[in-house]
C-alpha cells in the first residue's frame, strides 16, 4: 500500500495520458495525452531514483529526451495538418484523405 501511495501520482498521470490517447479524436489533444503518459513514466523513474540508484535516473533522462523530441515533432505535424486541412480532427482528416 505504501508503494502505491508513493507512485500514485505517476500512475495517475500514466492512466490519464493512456485514456486520452484512445479517447480524443483531436490530434493535438492526443499529443498532449501522450506527453502526459510519458511524464508519468518520468515521474515514476525519478521516484525510483530517489534511493540513489543511477539506473532509474539514466532511464528518466532518456525517456525525457525522447519525449521532448517526439512531442516537438508531433506538434510540428499538427501545425502542418492544421494549415492544410483547417482541422485537427483525425476522423475528418482521414475522410478527406480517402476521397
Amino acid at each position: 500500500m505504501e508503494m502505491i501511495i508513493h507512485h500514485g501520482m505517476a500512475i495517475l498521470l500514466c492512466l490519464v495520458g493512456f485514456h486520452g490517447v484512445f479517447f480524443y479524436g483531436n490530434l493535438a489533444k492526443k499529443t498532449v495525452a501522450w506527453a502526459l503518459f510519458q511524464i508519468g513514466l518520468i515521474v515514476f523513474l525519478y521516484s525510483l531514483a530517489s534511493s540513489g540508484a543511477p539506473l532509474p535516473s539514466v532511464l528518466a533522462i532518456e525517456v525525457a529526451s525522447v519525449t521532448l523530441v517526439v512531442t516537438v515533432l508531433l506538434g510540428l505535424f499538427c501545425v502542418k495538418l492544421y494549415r492544410r486541412h483547417k482541422t485537427l480532427e483525425g476522423a475528418e482528416i482521414a475522410r478527406r484523405g480517402s476521397k
Partner: peptide
C-alpha cells in the same frame, strides 16, 4: 500498474 507497484521492493532496498 497498481499490482506491479504493490510488488515493488521498498525504495531503500533497490540499490543492488
Amino acid at each position: 500498474l497498481f499490482y506491479t507497484c504493490s510488488q515493488l521492493p521498498p525504495p531503500d532496498s533497490t540499490a543492488s
